[in-house]
Design a protein around this nucleic acid. Structure first.
Lengths: 194, 194, 194, 194
DNA sequence: CATGAATGAGGGTTCATTCAT
DNA sequence: AATGAATGAACCCTCATTCAT
């Protein structure tokens, strides 16, 4: 069987990797520190992930999946585009604020060259539906005729900026969440109404 | 005096570091590869930079200075806010597209924990004027009453997104540059005119 | 458990260190030479001793323990003071002559600043009984009323001098052993009888 | 000309080496630290001493010469053996207490394998006269019929022990100096009179 | 499957020595 | 002669990975 015996251990290792990467930085994180944090022997890590790279890639996918779940599991399939986009925005931003460590690691991994293109593709997959939504919305004329990918990327970029501010100034978190979305919405609709 | 320390060699090392970091990632870049790329002996690197960390910080500052020069040296001190911001936008984005390697490394360094807070402060300094501009603009009501830092961060985030698209689709670079700025401008002004 | 840490290997490393230190001097002894001499990989040394310093200290303690054993394991708890001191003298001197390398390294380590005060304290412990003996002997008036520590130090100094001569002139070893003790005994008792 | 320009610099380097060796230990003393302490450039050291080893050997000889001067310059060529030996004893011991750093370095050098046999021979030369004295004394029956070298070595060993105690307990220095000599004299004469 | 000792290729850095200035 | 930058071989130690237990 391909799946090793204990999913618990695999998850423990992924979680440990996340913690260690967040604490010490992706670069300076030895596998020994990860296995220790996970409470398993050094060698055990390599029965769950053949190499450190594989672990890193698995973690990337896992975080992306988790984020996708946060965004999509309760995503409203009906209603005005603005509301649905704002739902996405809030879900994204709330996830990031609730999991600052995970967000931090995701940022590190997004720049790291150890994450393969394949992993990036796989990690993107669940977000395809969002793109579809945006595409539809544009076709109905609600959004400006900007390239869809560009709108999505802008949303992501602004959302991550927003998260950084929410984390830095927790007292103003709610305000930043709203303001951030306004900037995005105004930007891509060219509409003054908020 | 004996052989004086040569600026050429120092710059060669900084450039080499940039190249090696871009190629292999900040983490996996041995100093030996850097000195080799710079055409000096391994030990020579350490007469110019006491440690690898010091080299990394010097490179960060150097890139920031270069960027500041690109943005600020011809920056118009007069004229409509929109024009001046668009000037900044174009300068930034053009710099990034012209120096993708340098931008890439700057992104890596901005997340790296080896870059000290002091370096970040020093690197930020030349950009203070931009903040002043934004601040003034907000007071005069041209921009929405968003926190200045947030506007700056949003601009940066959207600009980097824009650069990625310009690099990916060079044929449409000019259009993306314009579109990106529109999104930013609409976003922070809430204005529909482009 | 996995492969347990082997005492054999630990001892092999200590012995190898002793040999390499004796041959090349404490200063110029690379850990690589030690592990090679011990027949293990370079990294293995560091699973038994976290640092080179730790190895040096362990070796110091080990030699001291060995010496203490040589002196004390058959030490006569009864009998005339002179006989008991002579026993100590002979045991010390015989040990040194039998283990010239070990003695040499001990001398090097005794001056080295890498040997911690703690190690020196631990290494001294087993010799405390000797001090007690001397103390008692002095109280009974057999030895002159010199400070105990001073008597002990003098004995050690003369013994090491003696060893050097025994090693240098093996044919006269027995005679030097006797003469050395006489000098010491006469010195601290001020007595002409031998 | 063989002799370099400045004897001052040569001496400064020797003194600097002594200080640095005393402070950091012979092993961990880079030539750069020595030249810095001497106030000359790194390369200058090598115009006065071709290699570090040569400097070490020169320092050894220099210290030995200094010590010999302290012992022999006012050494009484006449008088009872005991007085003359006591003069030597006091001169040696006073020198050591007055120059603890120099003594310390001498001890380090005496064990170091970088000091050549030739240097040791040269360093011993000025002390030959002492040997002659001892030799004569033995022939006249004042000293026991021990090998001369052995007596000399014993004297040295006891004197160094004494110095250690004088340095450790300065308040009792005078007493230790006297006691130490007694032990030595009694030892080698077998005489109870002090 | 789990364990952790064993491995050895690198990594950053030091340093004696050389040599251009 | 004096300087100190340049050199590159070592050095100590880390760490991903293997493998005996």
């Amino acid at each position: 069987m391909a799946r090793p015996k204990s999913d618990d251990k695999r998850n423990a290792l992924l979680l440990a990797a996340e913690q260690v990467f967040a604490q010490r930085g992706l670069a300076a994180a030895p596998t020994s520190a990860i296995s220790k944090q996970a409470g398993v022997a050094e060698g055990t890590l390599f029965t769950y992930f053949r190499t450190k790279d594989e672990l890193v890639n698995a973690l990337y996918r896992s975080i992306k999946l988790d984020l996708a779940d946060a965004l999509m599991s309760r995503f409203p399939r009906q209603g005005p585009v603005r509301d649905r986009l704002e739902y996405l925005w809030n879900a994204f931003v709330d996830w990031g604020v609730a999991n600052p460590q995970r967000l931090n690691v995701l940022d590190q991994l997004s720049v790291a060259d150890t994450v393969s293109d394949e992993s990036k593709a796989v990690g993107y997959e669940p977000f395809a539906e969002i793109e579809t939504l945006a595409q539809t919305s544009i076709k109905t004329g609600v959004l400006q005729a900007y390239p869809v990918e560009f709108v999505a990327a802008s949303m992501k970029a602004l959302a991550e900026t927003t998260m950084a501010f929410m984390t830095a100034y927790p007292a103003e978190a709610t305000r930043y969440r709203k303001v951030g979305f306004e900037v995005f919405w105004n930007g891509v609709t060219g509409n003054t109404k908020s």
